[in-house]
Amino acid sequence: MKQTPLRDMPCPIAKGLDRVGEWWSLLILRDAFYGVSRYDDFQTSLGIASNTLTRRLAALVDEGILARCAYSSRPNRYEYLLTDKGRDLRPVLVALLAWGNRHYAPDGALIELADLETGDRVDPVLVDRRTGRSLEQGVRLSDGPSADEALRDWIRRGVTL
């Protein structure tokens, strides 16, 4: 069954999900953050069908999230590296990891995050980049410069996240 494209919806969440919302894409990105870069290594790590992996890697490359780079010319072999756009997804995956631990690991965290310097456990939280304040208590939506009138009306209803 073909999914309905979300990229034309006036919502950045829908637009982002259209690009990376398929679960194999997120698992490929997870592995890329863990240092996996070669086709065979993705396939081994994920146990994914070859045709699915090929499609997902091509889609991530087309979106500019991964870059396909040759590492051998005889035979032709490629690796898939995170681009700046791809690396910008790190907080999304960290948040998903923390959420999964919190709600789906009843016996304790499956994977914990640790500070690179101290090794201390890290408990991620979303914060405002400018003020450093936690967004745990929620925020309200505000229309952006490219919002159309229908979206502005929807936002004026007082939507919060």
Rank of each mutant, 00 (worst) to 15 (best):
M1G: 13
K2Y: 10
Q3Y: 09
T4S: 13
T4R: 14
T4V: 15
R7V: 06
D8S: 12
D8L: 09
D8V: 00
P12W: 05
I13S: 13
I13V: 15
A14W: 13
K15G: 12
K15A: 12
G16E: 14
L17C: 11
L17R: 06
D18T: 08
V20Q: 07
W23H: 12
W23S: 14
W24M: 04
W24P: 03
S25L: 05
I28V: 15
L29H: 05
A32V: 06
F33D: 02
Y34M: 14
G35P: 11
V36P: 05
S37H: 13
S37Q: 14
D41I: 09
F42I: 09
S45D: 13
L46F: 05
L46H: 06
G47D: 03
A49Q: 13
S50T: 15
N51D: 14
T52E: 11
L53F: 11
T54E: 12
R55C: 00
L57K: 07
V61I: 07
E63A: 14
I65Q: 07
A67D: 14
C69K: 15
C69N: 15
A70L: 12
S72P: 06
N76D: 13
N76T: 10
R77L: 15
Y80V: 01
L81C: 08
T83Q: 04
R87D: 04
L89H: 00
R90A: 15
R90S: 11
R90K: 12
L93H: 03
L93T: 01
A95F: 09
L97N: 11
L97A: 12
L110G: 03
L110T: 01
I111T: 09
L113N: 00
A114F: 07
L116Y: 02
G119K: 02
G119W: 06
D120T: 03
R121G: 00
R121E: 04
R121Y: 00
V122E: 01
R129Y: 09
T131K: 05
R133I: 06
S134W: 06
L135G: 02
E136S: 14
G138K: 06
V139G: 11
R140D: 13
L141G: 04
G144S: 09
G144R: 04
A147P: 01
A150D: 10
A150Y: 00
L151W: 01
R152Y: 00
R152T: 02
D153F: 02
D153Q: 12
W154L: 14
R156I: 00
R156A: 15
V159C: 01
